[in-house]
Structure formats: structure tokens, C-alpha cells
Design a protein around this nucleic acid. Structure first.
Lengths: 343, 343
DNA sequence: AACGTCACCGCAATCGTTTGCAGTTGGTTT
DNA sequence: AAACCAACTGCAAACGATTGCGGTGACGTT
């Protein structure tokens, strides 16, 4: 073979025994003499034998590999999730294969196909922004195929999910702004087909309601792409009327917040004196910008760990036996920095 | 089978032909009647047949999967590289499996082992900070196993590499500072066992030399960890003497630069008026901080594409035939922002 | 009638590993 | 001496797909 990797057959030939014996000797099966075991193990060691994982996969219809489907690795949040996933996967002898969808449904579907034909043992998925039809997941779930959803939740029954409490995170963030004395709070929201966007918006609305503030519909604007540029433009537009403008912004995530901050500075408005601002996700840069951005931190690493652990559990329960619906919700943490502290 | 995935055998049984015939029919081999081909294809379609990639790997000793080894996904640079890699891999029908080393040599080695036992077709590697001994790569290369190194280059002969021109990037950056009128330039360097760190330092030194400026040894400080905190402390220390302090900093990368900026602000120094600063890598946040950071942008996506393309070439040349040494060096680009423009 | 040709298809081995079952020893028991 | 039981070990099928080689039958040709 290409790599000269020794196989069980090589060991068997050399030792004049059958491959069955070698296989059993290596795994300390009873019924193999200590003498043979010793010889086999020694030679295996000497030849630097490693079992061929592919042959194993074929035999066992199990690959010890889990597939991760995410929109984009460049998102700080997702890359921390990946780290969490890898950590527990590795610790349990599983490999991780990664597919970015770039927010494209077609890419999501084809990734699933190729991963399936690679006998993947289960999926960890945060689906694309384009995904509104979940039948490709439904089919697999009905067959008892293990899937754990994280961050973004599908509109399906009986799924196993790991998310953060977006509602509460948003609620806390907005309440904090209100406590600081801001009253005219705008919301730059995320794409409304995503559950997380809806939840954050709800949290925003309820926090206002709870403080007796009536929300201004014009000040709730969707940022479908979530780019810096987009929110720069939207914010500039939002603040163009000096007579009646917001005095604070709750942004769907930090990039959006950063774009807004640049727009505000550009307009000569001071943060946090004139306008307070809070983001979401605690991106890496959030503490480094000026002023440092108050944000809601999501425990990405923990999400990855949890999701991974749940998936491995599902993989290791006997098939046929279906798993119960589960909804793990992890707490967010409000990181108060300068951008929202008036005094 | 678990997923009810149809196999060639299922089709064969249903149609009362042999699996050989099905296999050949599906691939339009000559010597199969059009009638049979039609029937096979129809049924395959109906059963939603997908070839079992694992069985194929075993048969062909080829998995159509490439392994990527990087220090950490959370680095913006690496995640853009990954995107580039995935793009061309996917376009060519290859899968990507990802392993983070977290800068640990042991993790690097074990990842390689498990990937090898998964019949991986080749490696794309940016090795860990701990890696100073390259025999684990050397062994594979000697066996004709395809590896492309990127960003960080090993001390080995005849490897295929993709990097950016760190020397020139640094040289340009420092020359720019000098043009802006800065004269007392410090360098917060990277770990000196990495080639890139050395190259950037050389570029720094040569730019000074070329301008007739003698470097101050005390102002070249290594930041082995490259964290914000580390460079904050180092910078604070570096500027503690008001009598004789630098008037500019060339940082090994943007995080280091950001830490330095915070230290400077903390000391009441203005950027760029009192101190100019340039980073490296164009991290995502660099344009969002205040002032926006001048930096040397590395074409991460392109690096990924190039490396991936080279690797696929190597994989597809007949084995036994060794590949020639190659050193692709991509150009950096100096992004001039406010942090280094005096006027 | 005997032979050759051609189109079409199946057998069986192969990749590396696992595993139910059966076989071969040697020794012990009646 | 026949029977029996351990203790070891090997055979062969299986996972799913590929492929060299050989086989079958229907024709046409002499």
C-alpha cells in the first residue's frame, strides 16, 4: 500500500497465523494463548500497526466521525463553537468534519449528501439563513439519524437543541440601557426568519413594555445581511432627523453595532453620551473598539461541548430507540462596557 | 442498513442482474445493453442510490478527503484560509476534515495519526508553535505522501509551500511609518522560532537600515503569546520613560497592535499624533477600532485556494513520481488607515 | 453442420477488518 | 481404548463497490 502501512494480514503472514487470530489477539479476546498475543502485539508494535479506519467503517457501518454544518467559520461565535465541539469529539475518539454553507441552502443539502455517503455518525447543525424548509432534516430524523441543532432552531417537532437564551439576553441588555437613562431605544434586528432574531426582538420589546416605554415601529429595522456597511447606512438614515432620533441602539450582533458606531461617530454623535449602544455575541473585537462595546456574551465553547456531548449520547444509544426531545438553553452574560454607561 | 440507503446489491437483486452489471451500467461502461442501463439507472434514481464512499475508499485506497491542520480556527486569518481551502476542495469533489492543534505538538501528531488511518489523501498544514522537530512530516514526505505547508514553513528540504511575503509586508509597513515622519520605531515581534516572525523582523530592520536609522535593541521586544494583555503590559513598560520613548510601533499582528493601542491611550498618548502604529494581518476588527488600524493584509482566502490547488495537483499526479519543490509567495497589501497617518 | 463472432452479462477476487462457527490439538477421564 | 473436554486457532462470510476474465446465447458464415 501507498504508505506501507502494515495491515492485519501482514502480521498474520509474518507470524504464520490467520488474520482472525491477529485481530483477536490485538483486542485481548479470550481463547488466544498468551504466547500468541505477545508475539502479535510485539510485531504490531514493531510494524507500527494502526487499524484501517475505513475498513472498520465499512464493517461496522460507523465511522466515528461527526459532521458539523455551520454558516461560516469566520464568525467568531461559530469558531468558538467548533473548538468546543472538537474538544469533546476528540476526547471520545471521534473525528470532526466541517462544512460551511455560506448561508446557502443548496450547499447545505449537498454537504449533507456527501457526508452521508461517508457514513457519518451524526450531525451538528446550525442551518443556513436560506433554510426555511426542513424536510431534508426531517427525513433523516425519521430514520433515527442523530442530529443536534445549535444556535438556530428548526421548526420541527421532537428535535434535540442547544441554544442560548436569546430572549433573556436581549431583555437584560435593553433593561440595562433603560436603567442607564436611555429612553428612545432603536433595534437593528436580524433576519426575521431566524428564530434567534425573533427571540432577541421579543426580548427587546418586552423590556420596553416592562418599563412602560412604547416602541417606535420605525426604529425597529431589519438588517438582513448583518454587515458593517449595511448597518452603517441604516444607522445614518435612522439618525438623519435631528428633531426626533433614538438615544440608544440595541443591535442584533456586534458587527451591526460596530457599523452603527461608525455611522454615529461620522455624524458627530458621542458614544455613550449622546447615544448608548449594546451589541450581541461578544465578538473578539468588541473589547478593543472605542469605546469598548457593551454586549451580550454567548458561551460558544460551552454550546459546542454540550451539543457534541448530546450527539455522542444519541449515537451511542441503540438505534430504533428514539430519543426524547430536548432543549438545552444556556445562559448569556451581559458584559457592560463603556458604550452604554452614561455617567 | 441503518439509513435504508440503497446499495448496488439492492438494485441488482430487484432487477435480477449481478452487482457487476449494475456497477457498470451506472458508469456507462460499454458492453451493457441500453435497456439494462436504462432500467438500472431508473431504479437507482428511484431508490435514491448514492455510492458508499467508505466502500470506495477501501477499494481504491483513496478517500477524496484532505486534512487541514491549523493552530486555531478562532484566528480570523486561519478561518479565511479555511474558506479558501473548502472552496476549491468542494469544487473538485473533495471533503475537508479539520483539526486544530491549539498550538500543541502532541495534538498535531495524534491528529495526523488518526487522519492517516482514515485514508486521507493529503495534508494542508500550518504547524503548531511548539513544533520544532519535523520528522513526523519528513517521514510522510519521504513516502511520497502529499503535503502542502502554508503560512508557517518547516525547516525541511523540497517541500511545497504557500506563504505571503512577510518580509516585504513588514518592510513596506515600516517604510510607510518612516515616510510619515516617525523616526523612533519599536517592534513588538512574534515568537522567534517561527519563520514568519523572523521575516517580519528582518523587514523591519532593513527598512530602518535603508532609511539610515539605527535600530534601538531595547525597542525590539518579543511577544511570545501574542495576546492583547501581553502587549498591553509590554507597551506600558516600553513607554514608561517619557525622556526616551518610541514614537511608533510596528506590531507583529493586529491583536498585539490593539493591546499596544490600549496601553497608549491609557498613558494619555494620542494615536497617530504622538505615536504611530501599524499591525499585521488585517484582522476583522482592525477597521472598526479607533483610530482604525493601519495594517498589512494577508490574502488568506487566496492562500487557502492556492494551497488547496497545489495539494490536489500533487494528489493527482501518479505516485512514485515525486513533486518538485515549490515556494509560492503571495503579495501582501498595506492598508493605510488613520493610526499611522500623522497629518 | 460446424465454426467464428459479437453483444451482453456473471463469477469471484479484492480492499482490511470482524466474528460465528467449526476444526484441531493435547490431555484427561471412564 | 474410546470418549470427552478444554484450549487454541482457522475458515469463510460479511460490509459495498470495482474489475479482469471467462461464460452464454444468438447470430452469421462457410
Amino acid at each position: 500500500m501507498k504508505l506501507g502501512q502494515a495491515t492485519i494480514k501482514d502480521i498474520a503472514r509474518e507470524l504464520n497465523v490467520s488474520s482472525s487470530t491477529v485481530s483477536r489477539a490485538l483486542k485481548d479476546y479470550p481463547g488466544i494463548s498468551d504466547e500468541t498475543k505477545r508475539k502479535v502485539k510485539e510485531l504490531a508494535d514493531k510494524l507500527n500497526y494502526r487499524p484501517n479506519a475505513v475498513a472498520l467503517s465499512l464493517r461496522k457501518s460507523k465511522s466515528f466521525t461527526i459532521g458539523v454544518i455551520i454558516p461560516e467559520v469566520v464568525h467568531f461565535f461559530f469558531s468558538t463553537v467548533i473548538s468546543g465541539i472538537e474538544e469533546v469529539a476528540f476526547a471520545n475518539g471521534y473525528n470532526v468534519i466541517l462544512c460551511q454553507t455560506n448561508e446557502k441552502l443548496s450547499r447545505e443539502q449537498s454537504s449533507i449528501e456527501t457526508m452521508l455517503s461517508n457514513q457519518i455518525d451524526g450531525f451538528l447543525v446550525s442551518f443556513s439563513r436560506e433554510t426555511t424548509d426542513f424536510t431534508h432534516f426531517k427525513k433523516l430524523l425519521d430514520l433515527g439519524f442523530p442530529i443536534v441543532f445549535f444556535d438556530r432552531l428548526p421548526e420541527l417537532e421532537n428535535t434535540v437543541n442547544v441554544t442560548v437564551d436569546d430572549y433573556k439576553g436581549a431583555y437584560d441588555a435593553v433593561s440595562h440601557l433603560i436603567e442607564q437613562g436611555y429612553k428612545k431605544i432603536a433595534h437593528l434586528s436580524g433576519p426575521q426568519n431566524l428564530n434567534i432574531s425573533k427571540k432577541r426582538k421579543e426580548g427587546f420589546l418586552d423590556a420596553l413594555k416592562n418599563a412602560g416605554i412604547k416602541p417606535e415601529p420605525d426604529w425597529i429595522i431589519e438588517c438582513p445581511y448583518g454587515t458593517e456597511k449595511e448597518s452603517f447606512d441604516i444607522t445614518t438614515e435612522l439618525f438623519k432627523n435631528p428633531e426626533n432620533r433614538p438615544d440608544a441602539i440595541f443591535a442584533h450582533h456586534d458587527i451591526v453595532a460596530a457599523g452603527a458606531m461608525m455611522a454615529l461617530k461620522n455624524l458627530g454623535l458621542r458614544i455613550p453620551e449622546d447615544v448608548g449602544i449594546v451589541g450581541f455575541s461578544n465578538w473578539q473585537f468588541s473589547s478593543m473598539i472605542d469605546p469598548p462595546l457593551t454586549t451580550v456574551s454567548q458561551p460558544g465553547f460551552k454550546i459546542g461541548e454540550q451539543a457534541s456531548r448530546l450527539l455522542l449520547e444519541m449515537i451511542n444509544t441503540k438505534k430504533g430507540q428514539s430519543w426524547e426531545q430536548k432543549n438545552i438553553v444556556l445562559d448569556t452574560e451581559l458584559l457592560i462596557r463603556k458604550s452604554s454607561v452614561k455617567v
